[in-house]
Design a protein around this nucleic acid. Sequence first.
DNA 1: AGTTATAAATGGAATTATTCTAATTATTAA
DNA 2: TTAATAATTAGAATAATTCCATTTATAACT
Lengths: 145, 145
Amino acid sequence: MTFSLTSPFRKTFSNSLREKGLRPTKQRECVYGIILDKRDHPTADDIYYRVKKYLPGTSFATVYNCLETLVGCGLVRQVNMDRSPTRYCPNLTPHAHFKCNKTGRIYDIQIDEDTLSRMNALVPQGFEAENIDLSFSGTGNALEN
Amino acid sequence: MTFSLTSPFRKTFSNSLREKGLRPTKQRECVYGIILDKRDHPTADDIYYRVKKYLPGTSFATVYNCLETLVGCGLVRQVNMDRSPTRYCPNLTPHAHFKCNKTGRIYDIQIDEDTLSRMNALVPQGFEAENIDLSFSGTGNALEN
DNA sequence: AGTTATAAATGGAATTATTCTAATTATTAA
DNA sequence: TTAATAATTAGAATAATTCCATTTATAACT
Ligand SMILES: [Mn+2]
Ligand SMILES: [Mn+2]
Ligand SMILES: [Zn+2]
Ligand SMILES: [Zn+2]
């Protein structure tokens, strides 16, 4: 059994890929579905093992390939904290990340427009920022989930 | 010839180490001096080759050991952007980093108190942030240096 | 100064996340 | 269908960093 996206997500998925002349394969759909399904910022490794439950033949290289493709299409975002393995996030709104050093869990933190524009205003003249990255680490309650 | 710190820095250096019962070795002094000397956010690799000019017998492991020690003493900070090699920064004031995707150079960007406290205010109740990390990437003029 | 205890430095091997390569398989369009 | 092309696969390669066992340096104490 393959991992099937629900209608609205499947539409976004195949449109985004086809716009770039890429093919909506079952591996790509599965990887995307898994990232959407449990928004816990999984690593490639995490994703690999989850994908295997649906498509047992999937290789590690494929997971990395799919992730690169999905990032390239703007469907998911990479999250890097320190030197730990890259994590993947389907939340496309402007948001920061909080990593709890006790549990290792990563939480989304919304950024309001005001604070966001203040952060952007830090960038001096002559510089053009294409990307902002804000992350916190410390300890956080794990009440949610 | 060993890399010698100027008096005020040497004082900070040996005090910070001795506070933790650590020894101010010539390798540690050299690594610290190199990071202070050219504030270009060098990688361990960069630092290794610069150190070798002063202390040719230095090993890679030692550079990593010294860096870990200096970070532990709060004399330098690690800067991580994406998955690229860790860089080292002697600027201990609250500041963000801007990476130019064309040149690879990393620039310090000061953060004013106001913006800083707004960023801190994003952290929800129940979470205690020990660290903030703000980084930008894009294109920047390389006029300085 | 000389001895001893401990910390640090060293070279090389090991680890680990990620990327690359060459061969096979799937998808699409004609 | 067939042919062209793109994607997947297994495994090798890469690269930053860490680990390990040994040697050397440092500092405290005679
Ligand atoms: Mn895992
Ligand atoms: Mn270099
Ligand atoms: Zn997120
Ligand atoms: Zn800096």
